[in-house]
């Protein structure tokens, strides 16, 4: 009897398991394998090279460049996007005329594909007649080339990413805010707490599980969202705005160096795992689960 149930159980999860193994675990393992072989070229088949690809990576200045870029990108976008999301959620959580409209407006960037978003921003950034230059022109400022300057190309991309992501995170915060009973704030008010105290001592701590969830997503996204680079800068100038995933794409599909691409991918995966685990440990003490 127990054995029958056991078989049933496995049969029931078999379809899901198959999909996960086929499309998630199998490619991951394959990537790991590829990273210790050479890239097959022409008639030359791939052969085992051990850690050669990894050695090459360590001596690759572009790798270090995109990795640093990516760290700055993450450091710059994640806190800003989360803070903005929280601010917007708190703003549209209280009743006011036009609330539904504001919520929709804040959420719109999320619905748009990143490629479309990038095209909109390309129009903003275009030197000379882009929106930014037109506005600056009103104040008698000269032309800018935000995307063409190595110093500003990456920050310009970061602005787009924040604009795109904040609305998405806002939805989670909004849902979490609505799950907090309003009596808690009322009780705090009666006990003499002002708005800021209520936020700091009640609302924010109760939003911690959401903050954890959102920040893990934000970290993953900061390594994953590179679509807008293709439209806006193509990683330039001089790799100033290239990120790890974009570099992997270039290596694998522009230069067809698939083995080195696999090596970089393994590093990316390892990095993401470490960050996710690290976040869980970091937040564990601070998160109150109901």
């Amino acid at each position: 009897m127990r054995k029958r149930e056991w078989i049933y159980g496995w049969l029931l999860i078999l379809p899901a398991l198959t999909l996960i193994f086929l499309f998630t675990h199998f490619p991951a393992v394959l990537t790991l394998l590829h990273s210790v072989f050479s890239t097959p070229r022409g008639r030359k088949a791939a052969h085992f090279v051990g850690p050669a690809n990894y050695e090459r990576m360590i001596h690759d200045p572009v790798f270090w460049k995109v990795l640093t870029n990516n760290l700055w990108y993450a450091l710059g976008t994640i806190p800003v996007a989360i803070a903005l999301a929280l601010l917007m959620a708190v703003l549209v959580n209280r009743p006011f005329p036009g609330r539904a409209l504001s919520r929709m407006a804040f959420f719109t960037p999320t619905i748009l594909p990143l490629i479309a978003v990038a095209n909109i921003w390309l129009f903003f950034y275009t030197p000379g007649f882009g929106l930014i230059d037109q506005i600056l022109g009103l104040f008698g400022q000269g032309q800018t080339n935000l995307l063409g300057d190595p110093a500003t190309a990456l920050p310009a991309l970061m602005v787009v990413a924040v604009w795109k992501e904040a609305g998405f995170f806002m939805i989670f915060y909004l849902a979490a805010l609505q799950a907090i009973p309003p009596q808690l704030a009322e009780a705090a008010r009666i006990e003499g707490a002002g708005r800021w105290t209520i936020f700091r001592r009640i609302t924010f701590p109760l939003l911690m599980p959401t903050t954890l969830f959102v920040s893990i997503n934000a970290v993953i996204n900061s390594f994953r969202l590179v679509d807008h680079i293709f439209i806006l800068t193509n990683g330039g100038p001089d790799n100033a705005s290239s990120l790890l995933l974009f570099y992997i794409y270039e290596t694998s599909f522009r230069y067809w160096d698939t083995a080195y691409g696999a090596t970089l991918t393994v590093v990316l995966l390892a990095l993401l795992c470490l960050l996710a685990i690290g976040q869980f440990f970091f937040f564990e003490r601070k998160v109150h689960y109901k």
């Binding site: 009973p181 009596q183 808690l184 009322e186 009780a187 705090a188 008010r189 009666i190 006990e191 003499g192 707490a193 002002g194 001592r201 009640i202 701590p205 109760l206 911690m208 109150h288 109901k290």
Partner: peptide, 20 residues
């Protein structure tokens, strides 16, 4: 006057204790 300036205390039906 706002609630915090009335010098009173209140017990809610749901208790409204801060869970964290």
């Amino acid at each position: 006057r706002p609630a915090d300036k009335r010098d009173l205390s209140m017990v809610f039906q749901s208790y409204a204790l801060f869970p964290h």
